[in-house]
Simulated assay, not measured.
Amino acid sequence: MFTINLFPHLRRIVTARAASFAFLLFAVGLLLLTPAHGETIKSQKHSFTVDTITTGLNHPWSLVFLPDASMLISERNGGLKHVSKDHVVTSVKGLPDKLNYSGQGGLLGLALSPDFKTSRKIYLAYAEKGNYRKSGTSVISATLDEGTSSNTKTLSNITQIFQQYPKVAGGRHYGGRLLATEQHLYIALGDRGNRDKAQQNDTHIGTLVRLNLDGSIPFDNPFLSDPTSKPEIFSFGHRNIQGMTLDNDGATLWTHEHGPQGGDELNLMESGTNYGWPTITYGVNYVTGSSIGQGTAAEGMAQPVEYWVPSIAPSGLEMVRGNAFPNWQGDLLLGSLKFGLLVRVEIDDEQGKYVVAQEKLLDGKFGRIRDVAEGPDGLIYLLTDSSDGALLRLSPTPMK
Rank of each mutant, 00 (worst) to 15 (best):
H173M: 04
V355P: 07
L185V: 12
T159Q: 15
L144F: 00
M1L: 14
H173L: 02
R210T: 03
T252F: 02
V355F: 08
S47M: 11
D86F: 13
M269I: 13
D247A: 06
V64D: 13
I53C: 11
V83Q: 06
N221T: 00
N327P: 05
Y282A: 02
R368S: 04
I369R: 05
K81T: 06
T252R: 02
R368Y: 14
G176Q: 07
T118A: 05
D214Q: 01
N131Y: 04
F236A: 02
H238V: 01
S102K: 14
L383T: 14
Y101P: 00
F2V: 07
E146P: 10
Q160W: 11
F325E: 06
A127F: 04
K45F: 14
L394Y: 13
A324R: 15
V309L: 05
H238D: 00
V83A: 03
G170N: 05
G335F: 08
A302Q: 13
E350I: 15
T3G: 00
L99T: 04
L24C: 12
A297D: 08
S229I: 03
I205E: 00
S271N: 09
G300S: 03
V14K: 08
A16F: 14
I122T: 07
R11V: 12
G375E: 03
G130T: 02
D191K: 10
V28M: 10
G56M: 12
S138D: 02
Y132M: 08
K197M: 11
A251Y: 03
L95S: 05
T252S: 00
R11W: 10
V83T: 07
A16R: 14
H59D: 08
V28N: 10
L317W: 09
L391V: 00
I241N: 01
I380S: 11
E270K: 07
S395T: 15
S84W: 09
I205A: 01
G206I: 08
P326F: 14
N77P: 01
H258P: 00
D385H: 09
V372L: 03
M301Q: 11
T54H: 05
